[in-house]
C-alpha cells in the first residue's frame, strides 16, 4: 500500500503492530490504542524512537491527551470511505490539542478524499490504490480557492482564500 508523506510517495519508517505483539524500543512503531492506554505517560519517557498510535474512529481524541507529548504520529482510520469521523478527529487533534506530529489516514483512503483530508489536518496517507497515490498532487490542485477556513492558519483569509493549506501541509505544498 503506497504511503504518502509531504505530498510524495515515500517509504514508511514505521512498523505497524497488532494486538499482542511485543513493542520494540529501537524502531518507530505504531501501537494499538489499548497498548498505549496500558502505559503511563512517564513510562514512555525513556523511548527515543518515534512512537505512533492508531486511534479507532469511535474513540475520543481526549484519550490521547496525556500521551501527546510522547507521540510522533496518530493514525486515524477510514473503515469505509463514507465513514468520515476521522475528519473530525484530525481537526480536533490539530486545533483543540495542538498536535503537530504526523496524522496519518489509513483504511479506505481514496483519491477523492485527499483534499478534504489535507484540509482537515492529515499530512500522511496510506493509499488504497497505486494510481490514486500517483495522482495525489494533482488531486490537491483541483481547486484554486476555498470558501471556509479549516484551521487557524487559514484565519487571515477569512472565508474565501487560496491554498496553501493549513496547517500541516504548508511546508510540503507550493503556493498557488
Amino acid at each position: 500500500m503506497p504511503y504518502i508523506k509531504k505530498g510524495e510517495i515515500a517509504d514508511d519508517p514505521y512498523v505497524r503492530l497488532g494486538g499482542d505483539e511485543p513493542v520494540p524500543t529501537d524502531v518507530p512503531v505504531i501501537v494499538p490504542l489499548e497498548w498505549l492506554l496500558a502505559q503511563t505517560p512517564q513510562s514512555l519517557e525513556g523511548r527515543n524512537v518515534p512512537l505512533g498510535v492508531a486511534l479507532p474512529n469511535d474513540k475520543p481524541e481526549s484519550l490521547l491527551e496525556p500521551y501527546l507529548p510522547r507521540l510522533s504520529l496518530i493514525a486515524l482510520d477510514f473503515p469505509i470511505y463514507r465513514d468520515g469521523r476521522a475528519f473530525t478527529q484530525a481537526r480536533r487533534l490539530r486545533e483543540a490539542y495542538g498536535f503537530t506530529g504526523e496524522i496519518r489516514a489509513e483504511g479506505d483512503v481514496l483519491r477523492d478524499q485527499f483534499l478534504f483530508m489535507v484540509r482537515s489536518g492529515f499530512d500522511a496517507f496510506e493509499v488504497k490504490k497505486d494510481k490514486d497515490a500517483k495522482a495525489f498532487a494533482e488531486a490537491l490542485q483541483e481547486f484554486s480557492g476555498f470558501y471556509q477556513p479549516a484551521g487557524a492558519g487559514d484565519a487571515h483569509f477569512r472565508f474565501r482564500f487560496a491554498p496553501p493549506f493549513s496547517p500541516a501541509m504548508k511546508e510540503g505544498e507550493s503556493d498557488a
Binding site: 473530525t88 483530508m117 489535507v118
Partner: peptide, 13 residues
C-alpha cells in the same frame, strides 16, 4: 452556502 460548500470535515457525515 459559502461555509458549507465542500466543507472538508463535514462531507462524509
Amino acid at each position: 452556502r459559502q461555509w458549507s460548500s465542500l466543507h472538508p470535515e463535514f462531507t462524509f457525515l
